[in-house]
Amino acid sequence: MAKYLLLKHYRGAPASVNDVPMDQWTPEELSAHVQYMQDFADRLEGTGEFVDSQALSPEGTFVRYGGEGRPPVTDGPFAETKDLIAGWMVIDVETYERALELAGELSAAPGAGGKPIHEWLEVRPFLAAPPTITE
């Protein structure tokens, strides 16, 4: 088994097919979307492939070390930041093909008009633990 991150972007991914901002959806469309995500996670738990799912606020702050005895330096948020992560799902699956298949299903979550968003998701493998036998 290998773990993969299915990464969802607010910004930075190519445009979705059904590219209507969420605040333009009807309340029913929003509910249907949330329900789809929940059902998807439940189904993956049932197949023994679910690890974690989290959503992130779009508001972030950049922080760095400010030097000895000084508070950390903060900056941002930067409106021009290309890549803005919205959330993720972590799955534990038998093959890379299975990871792609599940990402495709997640991307079919309904949006405006109840139609699939066809949102671009990024699939990233985890760096695993090293095997015991290497030679």
């Binding site: 088994m1 993956l44 738990e45 197949t47 023994g48 492939e49 679910f50 690890v51 974690d52």
Partner: peptide
Amino acid sequence: AYLVPEATMAQRISR
């Protein structure tokens, strides 16, 4: 040991 939630492993075993 496999760094997955207990519920996920329980389902994997019962399947």
